[in-house]
């Protein structure tokens, strides 16, 4: 009897949850791709990273707090509104906004491949990540070629902390 009551309660919970969900109208939502919007609006040859506007590159509510991101918001850029971002960028270009107050406008810096937040320029214009097959392991200077060797080197390197911070190796021509 007790088991049947548990069963009934459980089924009732599912049914209620299902009805609650079905009563809610579905709303399709395209995932906004703001870096592409910025690149398109300013005619950039590269797609800037999320970190241009989002602190630490982590997107989400309340994270548009880099100096450039704050300027963009101050000029009317709003979430889920590509038009407002394009308009804000145009306004920033027009008034020569310099988020770091260093005399050089943010938009001009972006067009030159520089980070208006004062960060590493190579990071800003680096080839964006891509997914799917076609990638290969690039040989790095000093590496012994071959996956097997890499496995061993990486495993050992992981345990040996040579430097406090990771090394940046520029190996692309």
């Amino acid at each position: 009897m007790k088991a049947m009551r548990s069963l009934a309660l459980f089924v009732a919970a599912f049914v209620l949850a299902s009805f609650a969900l079905l009563a809610i109208p579905s709303r399709a939502r395209a995932t906004p791709n703001y870096p592409d919007v910025v690149a398109g609006a300013l005619g950039l040859s590269y797609t800037p990273p999320c970190a241009l506007c989002h602190v630490g590159g982590r997107t989400g509510l309340g994270t548009v707090n880099t100096p450039f991101g704050k300027s963009l918001r101050a000029h009317g850029g709003a979430a889920r509104d590509d038009g407002s971002i394009e308009a804000a960028l145009a306004a920033m270009e027009k008034d020569g906004t310099s988020s770091l107050h260093d005399g050089a406008s943010d938009v001009a810096k972006l067009k030159k491949g520089q980070d208006p937040n004062g960060g590493d320029a190579s990071a800003l214009s680096a080839e964006p990540p891509a997914y799917g097959c076609g990638g290969r392991i690039a040989a790095r200077p000093g590496d012994v070629s071959g996956v097997a060797a890499t496995l061993v080197v990486v495993a050992i390197a992981s345990f040996v902390r040579v430097r406090r911070r990771p090394r940046i190796v520029r190996h692309h021509a």
């Binding site: 799917g132 290969r136 992981s158 692309h172």
Partner: peptide, 19 residues
């Protein structure tokens, strides 16, 4: 596990190495 990276992600600079 010795990690050599996620080969579905490229270029190679984005791949993680470690354990």
């Amino acid at each position: 596990m010795a990690i050599v990276g996620n080969f579905a992600l490229h270029p190679d600079d984005y791949r993680e190495r470690g354990y």
